[in-house]
Simulated scan of single mutants.
Amino acid sequence: MGDEKTEQSERAEPGGSGDGGAESARRRGLTRRALLLGGAAVGVGAVVVAHDELGRLWWRVPGVVKKRKEGEVDARGAQWIAASGANWRRADRPDDYEIDRVVIHVVQGGYRTALKVFKDPGHGAAAHYVVRKDGHIAQMIRELDVAFHAGSRDMNERSVGIEHEGFVDKKESFTDAMYEASARLTAGICERYDIPVDREHIIGHVEVEGTDHTDPGPHWDWERYLRLVRRERDRPARTKAPA
């Protein structure tokens, strides 16, 4: 059943003679005008939404292919190792989705394990980057695309995910080389998308709303990490990554 108040308000008022009839007609006229104006506003809103959605999906139109270079990386020095196409989706970020977060992950395993599962179409998830203990970085998904890494569609669309070799309960997993390489990577991401270097915008997987993950865990040194990211961001002779 519909809402009773709504049903009553939509019933036409009976006509009448004299002032009562005129008032009734005036009210009906105002109601019809309000409906027309409201309908027009909804139509404009729908056009705006449709235009916004088309802006995000223009490159899916037959015959239109967004220019991409096979094996191209966003971070200088990273090695391209492609994730399965089932673990991410094509996008045109930041034109369609603003990038304003970096999400820090820990594999709960080794570097090779991360590469293996991210290349597995049955896994259903992958991060943009994987950082090895010695500081080597693999890029598996372009930053312009949406990686399935955070367990939240909204966070996936707005963030870049960085996976780190190691275990949340083993402090020794997080080496100096890893911290430094990851900090350079995050500094570059923050520079490219004008992301503030703070704990609101650089977060752990555990901080994503609705997640059941605990990484990067209690041994991840956030104070040290942000200090390193800021140092890299503010380096005078910083070499920018290729477009």
Rank of each mutant, 00 (worst) to 15 (best):
T6A: 10
T6M: 14
E7V: 15
E7S: 15
E7A: 14
E7F: 15
A12V: 13
G16H: 09
D19Q: 08
D19K: 09
G29A: 08
L30I: 03
L30G: 07
T31L: 13
R32H: 11
L35E: 12
G38M: 03
A41C: 12
A41L: 13
V42G: 10
V42S: 13
G45R: 00
V48S: 06
V49G: 05
V49T: 14
H51C: 09
L54N: 04
L54K: 04
W58A: 10
W58V: 01
R60P: 05
V64P: 02
E70R: 14
V73W: 11
V73M: 12
D74A: 06
R76H: 02
R76G: 05
A78Y: 01
Q79R: 13
A82C: 09
A83M: 06
A83C: 02
N87A: 08
N87M: 02
A91V: 04
R93A: 15
D95H: 15
D96Q: 12
D96K: 04
E98L: 13
V106C: 05
Y111D: 07
T113G: 05
A114V: 01
K119F: 10
G122I: 11
A127D: 14
A127R: 12
V130Y: 05
I137T: 05
M140A: 09
R142S: 15
E143A: 04
L144Y: 07
V146A: 14
V146W: 13
V146T: 14
G151F: 13
R153Y: 12
R153F: 11
D154N: 07
M155S: 06
E157V: 00
R158P: 08
V160P: 02
G161F: 01
E163G: 02
H164M: 08
V168P: 01
K170S: 15
K171C: 10
K171D: 00
A177Q: 06
A181G: 08
S182K: 08
R184G: 03
L185N: 04
I189Y: 10
R192K: 13
R192A: 14
D198M: 05
G204S: 00
H205S: 11
E209R: 12
G210T: 14
D212A: 13
H213D: 05
P218A: 03
P218W: 10
H219V: 13
L226P: 00
R227K: 10
R235Y: 06
R235I: 11
P236K: 03
T239H: 07
T239C: 07
P242H: 11
